[in-house]
Computed example of a mutant assay.
Amino acid sequence: MHSFGERLMVYAALLVLCAMTAIAVNPAAGALSLLQIVVVIELINWLASPADSAQARGNK
């Protein structure tokens, strides 16, 4: 997921799925599921970024 549009589409789908979880189970469960998934996706995206973007962030 390199572009903002791809991320937005994935997060929109996740929001719908977690909203259905919130309706079926519990609002807190839906919110926490969304939070956990977003954190993991962003962490993987940050760790898997190419070396040239790491240098752009100041990590040489």
Score class of each variant (00 low, 15 high):
Met1Lys: 11
Met1Asp: 12
His2Cys: 09
Ser3Tyr: 15
Ser3Ala: 10
Phe4His: 09
Phe4Ala: 08
Gly5Tyr: 12
Glu6Phe: 07
Glu6Cys: 07
Leu8Ala: 15
Val10Trp: 01
Val10Leu: 14
Val10Thr: 08
Val10Pro: 01
Tyr11Gly: 02
Tyr11Cys: 03
Ala13Gln: 05
Ala13Cys: 09
Ala13Asn: 05
Ala13Ser: 08
Leu14Lys: 01
Leu14Arg: 00
Leu15Arg: 00
Leu15Tyr: 04
Val16Leu: 07
Val16Phe: 07
Val16Trp: 04
Leu17Pro: 02
Leu17Gly: 07
Cys18Asn: 02
Cys18Trp: 00
Ala19Pro: 01
Ala19Asp: 00
Thr21Asn: 03
Thr21Trp: 05
Thr21Leu: 11
Thr21Gln: 05
Ala22Gln: 01
Ala24Ile: 04
Ala24Gln: 07
Ala24Gly: 05
Val25Leu: 10
Asn26Ala: 02
Asn26Tyr: 03
Pro27Phe: 00
Ala28Val: 13
Ala28Gly: 07
Ala28Ser: 07
Ala29Leu: 12
Ala29Gly: 06
Gly30Ala: 02
Gly30His: 00
Gly30Thr: 01
Ala31Ser: 04
Ala31Asn: 01
Ala31Ile: 02
Leu32Cys: 08
Leu32Gln: 05
Leu32Glu: 02
Leu32Ser: 05
Leu32Arg: 01
Leu34Pro: 00
Leu34Ile: 03
Leu35Ile: 06
Gln36Tyr: 13
Gln36Ile: 11
Gln36His: 08
Ile37Ser: 02
Val38Gly: 01
Val39Phe: 09
Val40Thr: 08
Val40Glu: 06
Val40Cys: 09
Val40Asp: 06
Val40Ile: 12
Ile41Met: 12
Ile41Glu: 07
Ile41Gln: 09
Glu42Met: 08
Leu43His: 09
Leu43Arg: 10
Leu43Asn: 08
Leu43Lys: 09
Ile44Lys: 10
Ile44His: 11
Asn45Asp: 14
Trp46Tyr: 14
Trp46Leu: 08
Leu47Cys: 12
Ala48Thr: 15
Ala48Phe: 15
Ala48Ile: 12
Ser49His: 12
Pro50Val: 06
Ala51Lys: 14
Ala51Asp: 15
Asp52Thr: 11
Asp52Gln: 11
Ser53Ile: 15
Gln55Leu: 14
Gln55Thr: 09
Ala56His: 15
Arg57Leu: 14
Gly58Asn: 05
Gly58Ala: 04
Gly58His: 06
Gly58Trp: 06
Asn59Trp: 15
